[in-house]
Design a binder for these strands. Structure first.
Length: 267
DNA sequence: AGAAATACCCGTACGC
DNA sequence: TGCGTACGGGTATTTC
């Protein structure tokens, strides 16, 4: 298995103990969780498949089966858990996969945004994704050149998974604050020096998120304790830890966005 | 073609 | 207290 860095809370959903188990049956409890194929095809194809490997690309979990790949995106409220057969399914379980060791894998997702794909053409789904921010392909040089090549607001560009794969709303606000860049700054105006700072900030923020096992921002988005270390996210009207200026909340590309108006100046 | 807006969800926190 | 509504997360789809 290639050494893939782990993106924040996705890390804990990678279950290496699944390797070697065979899928005996599938219980799809919320049909729309399954992006492809049809429920009928899904059951026909997945039953009897042995799990060969478990990995990740961007925010997608990849469960490598003998003839297919099972891709899982947890979106916001999704989680994977392995339970013994004796434990009853929970209210928000959307897909259950019963395994050859009398356990079952549960995809639990309160808000029903999570999706699952069973395919032998993973590239159709994963192929458009940008580089892994913690991978070797993501360098300060790459970032500077590709920021120059676009002309977009920084925040929506950083959230665009085809540009860089792995940053979500919280992490984007955090890394822009560390790099002292405004979310509405134009990507093509970013200097080499600023791109260096942004590159460093992106890696630092993701590593901290992983180290803290992600963030828990409300009861349903369960994770680690990174929320106790946010610099700007959710801290509107509180003083900036760097300069004491009151943090502002604005909307950028329909997303709640938090900035220190002193540290993150527009031009 | 590329970018922006919208749709998809539901438990919670709020206002009346 | 009870009811109605806004909110927020990530991305596929639709619109511009």
């Amino acid at each position: 298995m290639p050494e893939l860095p782990e993106v924040e809370t996705i890390a804990r959903a990678i279950k290496p103990e699944l390797v070697g188990k065979t899928i005996l049956s599938a219980d799809l409890r919320w049909a729309r969780t399954l992006a492809i194929p049809s429920p009928l095809q899904f059951k026909k194809q997945i039953i009897g498949q042995k799990i060969l490997d478990v990995s990740r690309r961007a925010k997608y979990l990849i469960i490598n089966l003998e003839s297919y790949n099972l891709l899982i995106h947890l979106r916001m409220s999704g989680d994977l858990m392995i339970r013994t057969g004796k434990i009853k399914p929970e209210k928000h379980d959307r897909l259950l996969l019963y395994l050859s060791d009398r356990k079952y894998l549960a995809f639990n997702d309160t808000r029903k945004f999570g999706r699952v794909w069973l395919t032998n053409k993973s590239e159709e789904i994963l192929g458009k994704l940008g580089p892994e921010p913690l991978g070797t392909g993501f360098t300060a040089k790459w970032l500077f050149e590709n920021l120059q090549a676009r002309k977009r607001y920084l925040k929506p560009l950083l959230l665009d998974q085809t540009f860089i794969a792995g940053l979500g709303n919280i992490y984007t606000d955090e890394c822009l604050h560390i790099a002292q860049l405004h979310p509405l700054a134009a990507s093509n105006n970013v200097t080499q020096k600023q791109a260096d700072a942004l590159h460093k900030a992106i890696r630092a923020v993701l590593k901290e998120g992983i180290r803290r096992n992600g963030a828990s921002i409300d009861w349903v988005y369960r994770g680690g304790d990174y929320q106790n270390h946010f610099r700007v996210y959710g801290r509107d009207d509180e003083p900036c830890a760097v300069c004491g200026t009151k943090i502002q909340k604005l909307t950028v590309g329909q997303r709640g966005t938090h900035v220190c108006p002193n540290c993150q100046r527009l031009r």
